[in-house]
Design a protein around this nucleic acid. Structure first.
Lengths: 197, 197
DNA sequence: GTCTATACTGAGATAGAC
DNA sequence: GTCTATCTCAGTATAGAC
């Protein structure tokens, strides 16, 4: 992958619309985004954009399922296939992946806060996603030190990652993987995790 | 305080406007909030609302400084006065406080994601706040076990709290203090933190 | 596949009456 | 302190020509 997180199909206008939508949903949220803005960004009129995506909600759905979802679940699947599945390794993979697609992480962060509102068109998407990720992870036979509560660790760690990504995006020029490395010392303290990282 | 986080002065209309603004900024973000919406909520016209707050940006400033800031800094000040300042205790206080003002936490979560955008009217507020909180906390002589990196722990813990609050708000009926208690087992693992919690 | 034109609704802000 | 009225601009969406 050369253009981290960017869309690519045989429809250039559609691809440009989705990329512009990721940027606008991230900066301005769903409510702050207008079809006119997307249209101007890609050099079309409003009607031209709506021909491709149907409606503003249709655009949101497209962007979440076609852009953000691709990749994340692959990491979980890859981890399941490991001989000794490691939580630190899984999160390192997620962080390395997200480090290369800041625009999509930005969109995810903005929308996931906006979608706390039960009326938000992406509310169900985020509620379901959160549940599914933890449920999937809990079915893995993790290689962890004795006495570790896997469910609590998973919930705490995913929460921490959300907060770290927010801080990463707020201050430009930082490296997400370096910030996460500092978190690892808190989440997986030595000597308890010696040999498990 | 009986009405957790609600405003109170000698100006009922102004108070109602600020309370309605907290709710709307939380649900819809700054961009999604309209003066008309606030006006309808409090039984005024747009012109009536603007008489009190000047402009939409003025309303945002008022709500951040008069509503959200009050209280949070008091907890830090209280902690400084403790004989043996404890990070777990400070965070327990913050969580107990926030547990009683969900509307303000909702506003904070939504705006802090929206304000990643450098052009957002609250961008500087959040960037400065984040820096100041860590800087203030680093000046406290914390009572922690040997070998703990205080700065990394503070950054990691505040990030985790943001993520936990997001999850708390997303699924109604949960208790924030209980969710945080689970996090404590991850942030302050026993036996290392025995006697330091 | 993209356009123009149009319908309808709502935004933020100001002036000035009461 | 609150109103009505008005200005200017932008929003989503549809119909229909090309």
């Amino acid at each position: 992958m050369t253009n981290a997180g960017a869309s690519s199909s045989d429809n250039p206008s559609r691809d440009a619309i989705l990329d512009a939508a990721v940027a606008s949903f991230g900066r301005l949220g769903y409510h702050g985004t207008s079809i006119q803005r997307i249209a101007t960004d890609v050099g079309l009129t409003k009607a031209g954009v709506l021909h491709h995506v149907g409606s503003k909600e249709g655009l949101l759905r497209l962007v979440l399922t076609e852009m953000y979802d691709s990749g994340t679940m692959d990491i979980m699947a890859e981890t399941i296939r490991d001989e000794r599945p490691s939580i630190p390794t899984m999160w390192r993979r997620v962080v390395a992946f997200n480090n290369r697609r800041p625009a999509l992480v930005h969109m995810f962060s903005t929308l996931s806060a906006e979608a706390i509102d039960p009326e938000h068109p992406a509310h169900d998407y985020f509620a379901t996603r959160e549940h599914d990720i933890v449920a999937t992870a809990l079915n893995i036979n993790w290689n962890v030190p004795d006495g570790v509560d896997v469910e609590k660790l998973l919930r705490a760690g995913f929460a921490m990652m959300d907060g770290i990504q927010l801080r990463w995006l707020r201050t430009p020029g930082q490296d997400l993987t370096a910030m996460w490395a500092d978190c690892e010392n808190v989440l997986f303290p030595l000597p308890q995790w010696e040999g498990y990282r």
